[in-house]
Simulated scan of single mutants.
Amino acid sequence: MVVSESALRDIPGLEGGVFPAQCPSRTLLDHVTSKWGVLVLLALGSETMRWSELRRCIEGISEKMLAQTLKTLEADGLVRRVAQPVVPPHVEYNLTEAGREVHGHLLPLMRWVGTNADRIISAR
């Protein structure tokens, strides 16, 4: 089935045009839906965490990718970094209001993925 361009423009809630390559939503979509972005947002959805806690929680993420993902999500206004002026340094991360909103939208998707991943991957 071929979908026309006008049908894509008429999707409820997407009238602003997320399909053009230059749409700013593409950048945010990339940050929020990257593998590591999703996992960081999900991990921080339940509690404030320190960097080392996030690293242990999100198995397989490298130090470089965790640092990069946290910086990106902080710049996007989804994650808040709170540094305590103590020695040794004590830094905590939590979700902003926008981050909590995104987290709420990611949960149903990740529930679906968790429920269906084995069936879909084994059917390959």
Rank of each mutant, 00 (worst) to 15 (best):
A21L: 15
A7K: 11
A117Q: 08
S4P: 00
A43W: 01
L106Q: 03
I61D: 00
R56K: 14
A75P: 01
G99L: 05
T48Q: 12
P24W: 06
E74H: 11
R50S: 10
G104K: 03
E92C: 10
H105C: 11
P12Y: 03
V40Q: 05
L107A: 01
Y93A: 02
A7I: 05
M110R: 07
E97N: 08
A75Y: 08
R55G: 07
T33H: 14
P85E: 05
S4C: 06
H90V: 11
F19A: 07
N94H: 11
G60V: 05
G13I: 02
L107Q: 15
R119W: 06
K71F: 14
L54Q: 03
K35F: 15
G37D: 03
R9N: 10
V87G: 04
A117E: 11
L44I: 06
V82S: 14
R9A: 15
P88T: 01
I121P: 09
M110W: 05
L39K: 12
L54V: 01
L39V: 02
L109R: 04
H31S: 15
I61L: 00
S4E: 10
L78R: 03
A7T: 11
R119G: 08
P108E: 03
P85T: 02
H31Y: 13
T27S: 12
Y93M: 07
K71Q: 15
E53A: 11
T69E: 00
V102M: 06
R111N: 12
V32E: 01
